[in-house]
């Protein structure tokens, strides 16, 4: 597999792309988690308002 080797620069090239993937996935996961938390918070908020 010459392609993986990248003419000797494999570690650098794949390292850079791997890091990019990690940063993208992190961005996505953080916003997904935030959505879940806010959904919960809003539900509680509305219930507390309904009790008043």
């Amino acid at each position: 597999m010459n392609w993986i080797y990248m003419g000797g620069y494999g570690a650098y090239v794949w390292g850079a792309y791997g890091l990019t993937l990690v940063v993208f996935v992190m961005n996505y996961l953080i916003v997904k988690r935030e959505k879940k938390q806010i959904q919960k918070r809003m539900n509680r908020f509305i219930q507390s308002k309904d009790h008043e």
Binding site: W3, M6, G7, G8, Y9, Y12, V13, A16, Y17, T20
Partner: peptide, 25 residues
């Protein structure tokens, strides 16, 4: 971009395959 940048685009005349970091940098 990934398929073209990592596989199809030719290597650079000076930097070889190392220039492919450009496509994320």
């Amino acid at each position: 971009g990934l398929i073209d940048g990592l596989y199809i685009a030719p290597a650079d005349y000076q930097q070889g395959d190392g220039f492919r970091i450009m496509y994320v940098h």
